[in-house]
Simulated assay, not measured.
Amino acid sequence: MNPSRCPCCGRRNQCAQAESATPVSDCWCFSAAIDPGVLDSLAPEQRNRACLCPACARGLAPPKPQSAAD
């Protein structure tokens, strides 16, 4: 599992801790309110391995990719 990817949607999770080789003192995920339903939906092997992305942490569906015609 890639620690810089959201285990829910696979997008970058924007976690400073996952993207840094050294410990960080602040990241959005340190104080984020996480939707418990999202955590419950993860398989046990996905838990505590990588941060959710901000959208999934709030329980929001990730935006749909735009097609080339858009």
Score class of each variant (00 low, 15 high):
Met1Ile: 02
Asn2Val: 07
Asn2Asp: 14
Asn2Met: 06
Pro3Asp: 04
Ser4Lys: 03
Ser4Leu: 06
Ser4Phe: 02
Ser4Ala: 14
Arg5Ala: 05
Cys6Pro: 00
Pro7Met: 04
Pro7Tyr: 00
Pro7Gly: 02
Pro7His: 05
Pro7Trp: 00
Cys8Ile: 10
Cys8Arg: 03
Cys9Phe: 11
Cys9Gln: 06
Gly10Lys: 03
Gly10Ala: 07
Arg12Phe: 13
Arg12Val: 09
Arg12Pro: 13
Arg12His: 10
Arg12Asn: 12
Asn13Val: 12
Asn13Pro: 09
Gln14Lys: 12
Gln14Gly: 07
Gln14Ser: 15
Cys15Pro: 06
Cys15Val: 06
Ala16Gln: 08
Ala16Arg: 03
Ala16Tyr: 03
Ala18Lys: 10
Ala18Val: 11
Ala21Phe: 14
Ala21Glu: 07
Thr22Phe: 13
Thr22Asn: 12
Thr22Val: 15
Thr22Gln: 14
Pro23Glu: 12
Val24Gly: 04
Val24Phe: 06
Ser25Cys: 09
Ser25Asp: 15
Ser25Lys: 13
Asp26Asn: 13
Cys27Met: 06
Trp28Gln: 11
Cys29Gly: 10
Phe30Val: 07
Phe30Trp: 11
Ser31Leu: 14
Ser31Pro: 04
Ala32Leu: 13
Ala32Arg: 05
Ala32Met: 11
Ala33Arg: 15
Ile34Arg: 02
Ile34Val: 15
Ile34Asp: 00
Asp35Tyr: 03
Pro36Ile: 07
Pro36Cys: 05
Pro36Glu: 03
Pro36Tyr: 02
Pro36Ala: 03
Gly37Cys: 06
Gly37Tyr: 02
Val38Gly: 00
Val38Cys: 07
Val38Asn: 00
Val38Pro: 01
Leu39Asp: 01
Leu39Tyr: 00
Asp40Arg: 12
Asp40Glu: 08
Ser41Gly: 11
Leu42Phe: 07
Leu42Cys: 05
Leu42Val: 01
Leu42Asn: 01
Leu42Met: 10
Ala43Asp: 05
Pro44Cys: 04
Pro44Met: 06
Pro44Trp: 04
Glu45Trp: 04
Gln46Lys: 11
Gln46Trp: 02
Arg47Phe: 08
Asn48Ile: 03
Asn48Pro: 02
Arg49Lys: 12
Arg49Ser: 11
Ala50Thr: 04
Ala50Phe: 02
Ala50Glu: 01
Leu52Ser: 00
Leu52His: 00
Cys53Pro: 03
Cys53Thr: 10
Pro54Cys: 09
Pro54Asn: 13
Pro54Arg: 01
Ala55Trp: 05
Ala55Met: 09
Cys56Met: 10
Cys56Val: 08
Ala57Phe: 01
Ala57Gln: 00
Ala57Cys: 04
Ala57Ser: 13
Arg58Thr: 05
Arg58Asp: 14
Gly59Ala: 06
Leu60His: 14
Leu60Ile: 10
Ala61Lys: 09
Ala61Pro: 08
Ala61His: 13
Pro62Arg: 09
Pro63Tyr: 09
Lys64Gly: 08
Lys64Cys: 12
Pro65His: 08
Gln66Cys: 12
Ser67Tyr: 11
Ser67Ile: 14
Ser67Pro: 13
Ser67Val: 15
Ala68Thr: 10
Ala68His: 09
Ala69Phe: 11
Ala69Glu: 07
Asp70Ala: 15
